[in-house]
């Protein structure tokens, strides 16, 4: 139940600007710690639906550098900003080196910024399972804008659709041509195309190619992606980039797209939560089921195949529910 009333102390601390409470709550979400539950529930009604801007695109195109530049710009304008930067977890060790913070250059005493690195922990789609709920806490904590950096695999950073209100897809000149971008599915998620590193040769060509692709496409939501060129050093085009993001945010309000998108995202989230819970319960039950061992013996002995074993296990777990 989402009901008004006294906030749990961690939620109260977060709303009051306690950054450590915020950091700890994000950890709790990441770890599947039940302590996150009351905080998320209490703070949901306090979220305002601030712009969540996704910065997606292949490895090394300058996503973190752009975020650093955007943070600097937004801070000059007096807006507060939170960043969630996702990097991949090793499928072997489960460990991760989270390096996006290297590009982050804010002075340590600027309390209007919050930067959190996050490991993907095996989630598909270029984000972590905890990213969405983390952005929600950041919204409730009062930040004016949330920036989310995807893993940067390029091929599959599609989860940003479920988290961001505006998606920026970053590419660079000579990335291995724009056809690659199309194939990767990034084209379907972009509200803004950002050709970064325009200081390098080939930038004009890359922009023209993207312009052509945009002109050829059909855009059901009534929004045609904007193509901008940027470089972070020397800085250029950053105002254009942010103007494009704001134009898209305005479009969302004017077209009713914001509400429609939100409904779509929330529906996906709720279904996802149910699936997680049902899946976990089922897996727990199956792993404890003595029948699993018996079936496994038969599969090993080749007297049953894995699909038939799965059928039987599912059937028996439905009966025993």
């Amino acid at each position: 139940m989402t009901r008004p009333g006294p906030l749990p102390s961690a939620a109260r601390a977060i709303v009051k600007g306690d950054r450590r409470a915020l950091a700890r709550a994000i950890t709790a979400i990441e770890n599947g710690d039940p302590a996150a539950d009351p905080v998320l529930r209490a703070l949901y009604p306090r979220t305002r639906g601030v712009p969540v801007v996704g910065i997606a695109g292949p490895l090394g195109v300058g996503k973190s550098s752009l975020i650093n530049a955007l943070v600097a710009k937004l801070r000059t304008e007096g807006r507060t900003v939170a960043v969630v930067a996702v990097d991949p977890s090793s499928p072997f060790s489960g460990g991760s080196v989270l390096g996006d913070r290297i590009r982050f250059e804010r002075s340590a005493d600027d309390t209007g910024v919050f930067f959190r690195s996050m490991a993907s922990r095996g989630a598909a789609g270029g984000l972590a399972a905890a990213t969405l709920e983390a952005t929600r806490l950041l919204d409730a904590a009062g930040f004016d804008v949330v920036l989310v950096e995807t893993v940067g695999s390029g091929q599959v950073d599609v989860a940003i659709r479920e988290v961001a209100t505006t998606r920026v897809v970053v590419v660079v000149p000579h990335l291995g041509d724009e056809v690659q971008t199309l194939k990767a599915g990034l084209f379907e998620i972009a509200d803004v195309f950002c050709v970064n590193k325009v200081d390098l040769p080939g930038a004009d060509l890359a922009r023209r190619d993207l312009d052509d692709l945009v002109a050829l496409g059909s855009w059901p939501g009534g929004w045609t992606p904007v193509v901008v060129g940027t470089s972070t050093a020397p800085p250029s085009g950053l105002d254009d980039l942010w103007a494009a993001v704001e134009a898209h945010e305005r479009h969302l309000d004017a077209s009713g797209g914001r509400a429609a998108d939100e409904r779509r995202r929330l529906s996906g989230e709720i279904v996802g939560l149910v699936r997680d819970r049902v899946g976990r319960d089922l897996i727990d039950r199956l792993e404890r089921d003595p029948e699993l061992r018996r079936l496994l013996d038969r599969v090993v002995a080749r007297s049953l195949d894995p699909r038939a074993a799965a059928d039987r296990l599912l059937a028996s777990s439905r009966r025993s529910r």
Binding site: N31, G32, G95, A119, R121, G122, L127, E162, I283
Partner: peptide, 15 residues
């Protein structure tokens, strides 16, 4: 959200 089922509880050391 993603294709994967969210693991129940894991708390890797953050350093």
């Amino acid at each position: 959200m993603g294709v994967t089922t969210r693991p129940r509880r894991t708390s890797p050391i953050r350093v």
